[in-house]
Write a protein that binds this DNA or RNA. Structure first.
Lengths: 211, 211
DNA sequence: ATCCGAATACTCGGAACCGAGCGATTGGAG
DNA sequence: CTCCAATCGCTCGGTTCCGAGTATTCGGAT
């Protein structure tokens, strides 16, 4: 009955909000802008709706508080938030927890790979090659950006380690994709009988649509 | 009546449902059971609520259809579903799409790593070591299970590639975690001044806090 | 002076998600 | 034969999520 003070917030975007408030008080709209400027929208899913929800929750559980609501010009009002002592402590606790405890994630590619059989050897190889190509591209972009930031000086490596991690994981994925593609084309990964007829037949004539 | 026939289903659990129906018609409860038996709940988030939602959606967009509703003994009725021709085609299309197109994922660890600074060098190293340990453990379990399944004969490699992928990714993560931990303890990853005082002080005494 | 597009700041309501619960049933233990 | 625990199969309704929309203002090109 008492407005569920549920003492938990699962949305990682909350962490981003707390992180920003560690630097200085701001209002939601600016948070979104900053996160995007810094490319942190690769790390957190920044959607306006969720952002305002998260901020409200954070306020309810008293990890942050409204500091003032100002109006610049005759623009919509904006509410500026700052963290509380509790919020600062919980921020650290949250990070610690996330680092220590591997969470169950359900990446879509994992699901897709589970049904690779459905594409048939040729279809699978083709699709995998396209993925590889795309991964290579975004990998190149990220690497370049990373280098730019580091060499251009003013950001210590610590603030950029998450990119190193992201790159590592992409490399691993790419490596695997390339290997499995090779295994398919060389026949080292075989398509068992039942599957061969299975689904692939369907995809050859989708009726009303092609390519 | 334009009951939004929204022609899309994003929840990957839908893929699992279609996958099961490729084998033979079933009812939702059995789907959940089967998925768990086969350990596919490592790949798909199997929650009853969502399952029934997904099945309903799948039915609405006519990728599957109810085949009959039977009652065994005087147990609750169960509705048995089967795929439609459309469903079979879309299943393949969906897999193809998921393989080709890397999706934006937002793993929690990535978020956590972004704020590693907050833990201070010692805290970060400690947390990372714990993670490493846990990852090592689940890696061992998965590897063992994988070997068991393969050696025990009756499952072709194709049906198990997703495990190979999962293992690869875990190895990559573990490798990175170990390296970065080493970089921290050897001082190769430095904690810049501003951060040192920053937050770590807070976590030392959750009470009132000075600094 | 006027128009237009970008930026500012947030709201709103529908969609998706998911776990607790429910009402029954079967299979043993005693 | 009776009782309890486990299984069966599903529903319900509260969160959480999120993108389209709203209403305003600023800056610059015409």
């Amino acid at each position: 009955m008492s407005t569920s003070n549920s003492r938990v917030l699962s949305n990682p975007l909350g962490l981003a909000v707390l992180g920003l408030l560690m630097e200085s008080p701001t209002h939601p709209h600016a948070m979104a802008a900053t996160l995007r400027e810094r490319g942190m929208d690769r790390v957190f899913k920044v959607t306006t709706g969720s952002l305002y929800d998260v901020v409200r929750t954070l306020q309810r559980i008293e990890w942050i508080e409204a500091r003032e609501t100002v109006r610049v010009g005759a623009r919509p009002e904006r509410t500026i938030y700052q963290h509380t002592a509790l919020g600062r402590a919980e921020f650290v606790r949250w990070v610690d927890e996330l680092v220590r405890t591997p969470a169950d994630e359900y990446p879509k590619f994992l699901a897709a790979v589970s049904y690779l059989g459905a594409l048939g050897p040729d279809g699978a190889a083709a699709a995998l090659r396209e993925r590889a190509e795309r991964v290579r591209t975004s990998l190149a972009e990220i690497r370049q950006e990373h280098r730019r930031v580091l060499e251009a000086g003013e950001v210590p490596r610590l603030f950029v380690v998450e990119t190193e991690y992201a790159v590592r994981m992409l490399e691993a994925e790419l490596g695997w994709v390339e290997e499995i593609t090779a295994d398919i084309t060389t026949g080292r990964l075989a398509w068992p009988e039942p599957v061969t007829g299975w689904i692939h037949t369907e995809s050859r004539h989708p009726g009303t649509e092609e390519r």
